[in-house]
Design a protein around this nucleic acid. Structure first.
Ligand SMILES: [Zn+2]
Ligand SMILES: [Zn+2]
Ligand SMILES: [Zn+2]
Ligand SMILES: [Zn+2]
Lengths: 153, 153
DNA sequence: GTCAGCAATGTTATAATATAGCGAGAGTTC
DNA sequence: GAACTCTCGCTATATTATAACATTGCTGAC
């Protein structure tokens, strides 16, 4: 787990859970205990989480959860915009600014695992322009950058 | 398989195999029959190929290939720059301009499967700038766009 | 030529990631 | 409380990928 030092991470978790309540209330969906538990675990740090790690965690509670439980829950959280999937890692990360649909870009530290989500219009615009120039109509952008974070350089 | 109409696809395959010969000769590696066969199959069209489809194809030749054979061969081809991996599809596609290391961007048609590789410095630059602004040192960029190609729009 | 060395491929087993399909339970509505 | 629907459990299976070791076969020194 990556725990960025110099900040009170409990606030990150609390903020994520609060956003979840707000979003679910707004969309008529339910923020159940299971979903809350999974979201909290995704937010255990600022790195990406594997589905089977969540599974093991839930299983540890003596419930012995099965894969569909985790994947369904993750799908729900993604649909609410609370969690993103990192395609290059087959892993999941909490969205720090859920609520508004966005084209995020992800910076992934290959040393400590930190995942930082940024929203640079310049990137999204450049991608959109490049695709349009090639005759493509963009539905979804996936931008993931592997590298070293400020602390690990 | 996606076969873009209006072009002689045999030339695409021949060009890929020729590039492979040239690159291997230049790097002191061997373009073996197996590698040639896999590369030719990756180039059976302009869409992405799954590892286990390659496996089935090789197995069809009565050799019954095993997964490591395919993954090792793909790894070799990727190392030579002849093939790219599409992270969002868990699939592979031939590089139309191998030989020079490049930060490619991939446009993936969600209807017909066509994969088009572009090289827009504007995209790579925007990503590099965004990452640098966030304190990251970039090692590898992954840009994949899902959408509709010109024919499918 | 032949033999040592190394690159390539074969083989077995297993790990890691993900979904289909159906049924039971719980909250909501009327 | 009966009907409805969303949620969750559960079994099974599909898909993607790697570890570890054995064997084959090319290549270059001699
Ligand atoms: Zn935090
Ligand atoms: Zn986000
Ligand atoms: Zn072609
Ligand atoms: Zn390329």
């Amino acid at each position: 787990m990556h725990q960025a030092s110099g900040h009170n991470h409990r606030r990150c978790i609390a903020a994520a859970l609060h956003s979840a309540d707000r979003l679910c209330a707004g969309s008529g969906t339910r923020m159940t205990a299971l979903r809350r538990k999974v979201l909290a675990y995704v937010w255990r740090g600022h790195d990406a989480v594997k589905a089977y790690d969540i599974l093991a965690r839930l299983g540890g509670d003596a419930h012995l959860a099965k894969p569909p439980t985790v994947y369904r829950t993750l799908q729900f959280l993604r649909a609410q915009g609370l969690v993103h999937r990192l395609e290059s890692l087959n892993a999941f990360v909490g969205c720090p600014q859920p609520g508004k649909p966005h084209e995020g870009q992800f910076l992934i530290c290959s040393r400590c695992g930190l995942v930082r989500e940024i929203h640079e219009p310049a990137i999204a615009d450049a991608v959109a322009e490049g695709a349009t120039a090639a005759g493509f109509r963009v539905e979804r952008q996936m931008v993931e950058v592997q590298g070293l974070c400020a602390k690990c350089r």
